[in-house]
């Protein structure tokens, strides 16, 4: 799926930086890494591309359609061809890994199949294959709240692998993994995109991973594109000025497993 955005702006308000006019063309099947300091606008850009965020102004075309100009049904079908890997994978704690993975295809399954799958998982083999690629096949029937943060992040990736979308958007997809596992998992994602001819756009904190795995690097700073080069052409100076005078912040919140508090039935009004 190819992407074309021009003069894209997002205004959150005075105290929060957004995007201040971004132009970017990405051809179908390209693999692009977005790097830049915290708060540069990487996540905003990805959310715009994933139609999660409507831009304040500017043009956005995904696979030659403008997502905010089409009907709801058409938008839904467009979205079913976009897969997003979230930094903190939004998986219900009580859901089983197999169900969470199969949920990737809710957009293209017929309703009866999705409904039945809630009780009897409809494609165990498919879910297992996807989980095998991120080394989690033995967790197939575990509940999500039994998994560690890194394992959950890989379940999120397995869901997108199972979805097999034409456009993969990954927001810090390996932030909760140790270095060697991060590299391996990123390689799985890249291979999947290359083999299927899908477009892959990932925001990454680890610059060396981005340079090693992605042919094209986009540097983002202060809501604008600082540079857009092939990985081989990115110089030491480019990186230095991209991350120059980065405020010392505690860092972006890591992928933590969100535990919802259990609510007991005591203490309720009783009449």
């Amino acid at each position: 799926m190819d992407l074309r955005i021009s003069a894209l702006r997002i205004d959150y308000g005075a105290d929060q930086p957004g995007l201040a006019g971004v132009d970017l063309d990405i051809a179908a099947g390209e693999r692009v890494a977005i790097i830049g300091p915290s708060g540069a606008g990487k996540t905003s850009l990805l959310r715009c591309l994933g139609t999660a965020l409507r831009p304040s102004s500017g043009n956005i075309e995904i696979g030659r359609v403008q997502p905010w100009q089409i009907s709801r049904a058409a938008l839904r079908s467009l979205r079913s061809r976009i897969g997003t890997v979230h930094q903190a994978p939004p998986l219900p704690p009580r859901q089983r890994v197999v169900t969470a993975t199969l949920a990737g295809r809710l957009g293209c399954w017929p309703a009866w199949k999705s409904l039945l799958s809630l009780l009897v998982p409809q494609d165990i083999a498919g879910a297992r294959t996807a989980l095998e690629r991120v080394d989690l096949q033995d967790k197939l029937f575990e509940r999500c709240d039994q998994l560690s943060g890194g394992q959950l992040q890989r379940v999120g990736i397995a869901r997108v692998l199972y979805q097999a979308p034409a456009l993969i958007l990954a927001d810090e997809p390996v932030s909760a993994l140790d270095p060697s596992l991060a590299d391996h998992t990123l390689a799985v994602l890249c291979d999947d995109a290359r083999n299927r001819g899908a477009t892959l756009i990932a925001s990454l904190h680890a610059v060396e991973l981005a340079l090693a795995r992605f042919p094209r690097i986009v540097g983002v700073r202060d809501g604008r594109i600082a540079f857009d080069k092939p990985a081989s052409a990115v110089s030491e100076d480019d990186l230095k000025s991209l991350y120059a005078s980065e405020r010392v912040t505690p860092g972006e919140p890591g992928a933590t497993h969100v535990v919802t508090p259990r609510v007991s039935a005591t203490g309720l009004p009783c009449c």
Partner: peptide, 19 residues
């Protein structure tokens, strides 16, 4: 978050609610 993510990957509203 979980429901929003499913809607973003094209799940119909009712199914996004159920999953």
């Amino acid at each position: 978050a979980a429901e929003a993510a499913l809607k973003l990957s094209g799940a119909p509203r009712a199914l996004a609610f159920l999953y």
